[in-house]
Structure formats: structure tokens, C-alpha cells
């Protein structure tokens, strides 16, 4: 459940004010946000993740008005309810796959269940590299680890920032399918921002900025 209204944002040292259309997603609904570079896609995603605060308007996730939370509370809320997928940097470099997932659960303050981790790794075909360092993983494996990291703590919303732009066509489809399946299995809202036209057909619900 996610709802925004009259969202506007301005960077400190800039005069440009971004105004965003309202978003309203019910349970299990997904959204693809398309747009050119510099239009404010990542800004919108960071607003939804509580990493930035809007100058006006409101953001409500599961009934919580997140932009009014204190920094500490926002950190906690984000760790617990939001999963983020990035384009390139997917996890902590000094840790192994397993350690990364445990770390994610630790900061989300959720019980660290080894079976849950193993199950997820199995679904994402990462079982073999459970104890590998990130340097040993391929780009596709890294992107799947990124999904695992956004998923392991069973968040309410998954926000993905250009998850497919550095992937080839096959991997792109696989990764998107996994992302959507996982979001569905968790009853989470999936919001993907991209300029990658390849994945447009996978969404019923799109928003162009």
C-alpha cells in the first residue's frame, strides 16, 4: 500500500522544482515509472524510500506518513519495510553472499533464519555461491543477489532503480521475472524506475514522467 499526493522536491542548490504525479498502489500492485534522464526518476524513488524529504505533499506507506518521521525512525522504518534494488552496487563488498543476507536481516531487526536465506538463494539460483565473496560473482549473479538483498526481510515495498540497464536481453527478462515473482510471493508493491523499454511489456501499470 502506497500513496503520494502533490509531491514536490527541490535540491538545495538548485532552482528546479520537481513536481510528481500522484501515485496510489493497492495490495500486490506493481508500477513501472519511465522517463528520460534528469527528469527526476531517481529523486522520486529516493523520496519513496525516505532518503530525501519533499518540500511539499505527502507520502504514505502502509498508513505511515514517512516524511514526517525522524531520521532514526526513518532508518528503522526503511530497514523493516522497504527493499531497494540498485543498478550496480548490490551488496557490501567485504562480506560473502551469506553474510550480506544475514547483515540485511540484522539491520532490519528481523530474526536471522538460515532456512529462509537458503530457500531464497535456491529460488534465485545462488545456492552454489553462498559462501563466495562478491568479487567472485558474475554480473547476473550480482543482480540476483541485489534482488535477494531487497527481498530477504520481506518488505512491504520493493523499489528498483534501473535494475536491468546493465544486463543483456536474456538476463534482463530473467531478472525482471524473478523480481516480479518475488514481490508477488511477498505481497509487496514493486516500483521499478527505468528508461529501459525492454521491460515495458511486463507491466500493466506504467507512469511516464
Amino acid at each position: 500500500m502506497i500513496k503520494t499526493s502533490n509531491l514536490a522536491f527541490k535540491y538545495d542548490r538548485s532552482d528546479v522544482v520537481f513536481n510528481f504525479p500522484d501515485i496510489s498502489l493497492g495490495p500486490n500492485e506493481n508500477l513501472l515509472i519511465l522517463g528520460k534522464s534528469g527528469i527526476g526518476k531517481t529523486t522520486l524513488l529516493h523520496l519513496l524510500a525516505g532518503l530525501l524529504s519533499p518540500i511539499s505533499g505527502s507520502i504514505e506507506i502502509d498508513g505511515v506518513t514517512i516524511h514526517t518521521l525522524s531520521e532514526q525512525k526513518m532508518d528503522k522504518f526503511r530497514g523493516h519495510n522497504i527493499g531497494l534494488v540498485f543498478q550496480k552496487n548490490h551488496a557490501i563488498r567485504s562480506l560473502t553472499v551469506m553474510e550480506n543476507l544475514k547483515t540485511r536481516l540484522f539491520f532490519a531487526k528481523k530474526p536471522i533464519s538460515k532456512t529462509a536465506i537458503t530457500d531464497l538463494l535456491e529460488q534465485l539460483e545462488l545456492t552454489d555461491c553462498k559462501y563466495h565473496g562478491l568479487a567472485e560473482l558474475s554480473v547476473g549473479q550480482l543482480q540476483r543477489l541485489g534482488i535477494a538483498m531487497a527481498m530477504i526481510h520481506q518488505p512491504q515495498i520493493i523499489l528498483a532503480d534501473e535494475p536491468t540497464s546493465s544486463l543483456d536481453d536474456d538476463t534482463c527478462t530473467t531478472v525482471m521475472k524473478l523480481l516480479m515473482e518475488q514481490a508477488n510471493a511477498n505481497n509487496a508493491n514493486l516500483i521499478v524506475i527505468t528508461h529501459d523499454q525492454r521491460i515495458k511489456s511486463l507491466f500493466n501499470n506504467t507512469l511516464t514522467l
Binding site: 532508518d75 552496487n89 539491520f107
Partner: peptide, 18 residues
Amino acid sequence: ERAFDLALLRTYGSNTFQ
């Protein structure tokens, strides 16, 4: 060098103090 890692940790829910 680890700025990104540290930022990631923040998105995982860690606070500045941690």
C-alpha cells in the same frame, strides 16, 4: 571508498550510530 557500502547499510536500516 566505502561510502557506497555505508550508504547501502543505511538503506538496510542501520542508523548513523551503528
